[in-house]
Design a protein around this nucleic acid. Structure first.
Lengths: 220, 220
DNA sequence: TCTCCGTATTTTGGATCCAATATTGAAAAT
DNA sequence: ATTTTCAATATTGGATCCAAAATACGGAGA
């Protein structure tokens, strides 16, 4: 493990706060719908409100929080419909990314994808949910990056961010962890065969499973 | 014309600045690639750097500016490839929006769309490029809104923002203005017939024309 | 002349303070 | 009891000031 992985505090306070806020929201420490009290949060994070507000603006752009002038920021609530909408949009965008990526895949890319998959499996074996979520994300983003469409990838990444909280729940179930591994292997196989259709199909299944697994958790 | 349309300064400085910055970037007053000097801009707009920086964060989220820690913000440069990428993503997302919207269209929605189209034609007749760009945007967003997918619409809106500068160029040509009107009428016709396929097809043509018209302007 | 290094200047990042707006709560009127 | 009004309080918005980093500049050395 490289020494850089000992979590270095980012070079600016806003980036540090951004990371902390993301975690707080996606782990549910900041409840959906709750107002974000800047003074309290700033004190808790040991920064002033200025970098905090800049981080909040970023999150607003990503749809994790909402903003009303003179009333402040609120944690976005994700309804089941919202989740379905996000996954539908992901389906559209990720299909495009994969179709563009497949013909451009080098052997080197494939090797890196396989290494990424190894990371996922290791994390799963260790039962480390957070590590598995991170590795899973890395695997997918690596594939999307091969599309050569940076803006598309950025959009997809933002959509992933907005549902991170729920993805962690998903990986909490050992059965789901098993399934994810199998699905990734199917995707890798399709990629090796350079079959965009198959790769898209396996990813669609992958996503659909996640939605059906998460739906019951969102009926509250 | 309602009294509210006499441009009211927004309720917060950041919103005011956001609007001004958008205009400055999309009209090219701030050149692509140019660094954004916060002190100078803040003074010019008669605000402090705090609301300016929050507006810049918003624009960063929309992809109109880039940011590097300790180096600041820069106006995003849009290459021809970038433009094509944005339009391709729009194609994917707008198709989805239209397909969802068509079965939900009420007669009332259609009437409003026709009214919006009248606005476009009036602006075109008056040769008012800015008004036409605004009316055109309103027409399309009204249609997308009928999809009932707020996140999707938000994404599309952001994509429109990121190419606003070039859209104005497009409307500068009287021939293009004529064409846009015809294309809108074709779309409206398809919507009246509740034909999603035809509506999508006309919009695809609409977009393709814009790209081919703009391509020569971006070879610099 | 070119490169390297150190200092001066510019520019961004962040903290604190004050102003403006919204929210809360209690008292008064119906 | 219910509603309205108004003041007290809490919270956000913004300006100013200082710190930290990056950039520009100029001189020393090869």
């Amino acid at each position: 493990m490289s020494p850089d992985e000992a979590r270095r505090r980012p070079p600016t306070a806003q980036q540090f706060v951004l990371g902390e806020l993301r975690r707080a929201i996606t782990t549910g420490r900041l409840r959906p719908g709750a107002p974000i009290r800047q003074d309290a949060l700033a004190e808790e994070l040991q920064v002033s409100r200025v970098p905090l507000r800049e981080a909040l603006k970023t999150l607003q752009g990503e749809g994790l929080v909402t903003y009303e002038a003179h009333r402040g920021y609120f944690v976005e609530t994700l309804s089941l419909d919202d989740l379905r909408e996000v996954y539908r949009i992901r389906e559209l965008l990720e299909e495009e990314a994969v179709r563009r990526a497949v013909p451009r895949l080098t052997d080197d890319d494939l090797a890196r994808l396989e290494a990424a998959q190894d990371d996922v499996e290791r994390a799963a074996a260790a039962g480390d949910v957070a590590a598995m979520a991170a590795a899973n994300r890395a695997f997918h983003m690596m594939l999307f990056d091969c599309s050569g469409m940076p803006r598309l990838v950025r959009l997809i990444r933002t959509l992933w961010d907005s549902t991170d909280a729920y993805r962690s729940m998903y990986y909490g179930e050992p059965g789901n962890r098993e399934r994810v591994i199998k699905e990734h292997r199917a995707t890798l196989d399709a990629l090796r065969r350079r079959s965009a259709d198959d790769a898209v199909a396996t990813l669609d299944v992958h996503r659909a499973h996640a939605v059906t697994a998460l739906a019951p958790l969102l009926d509250t």
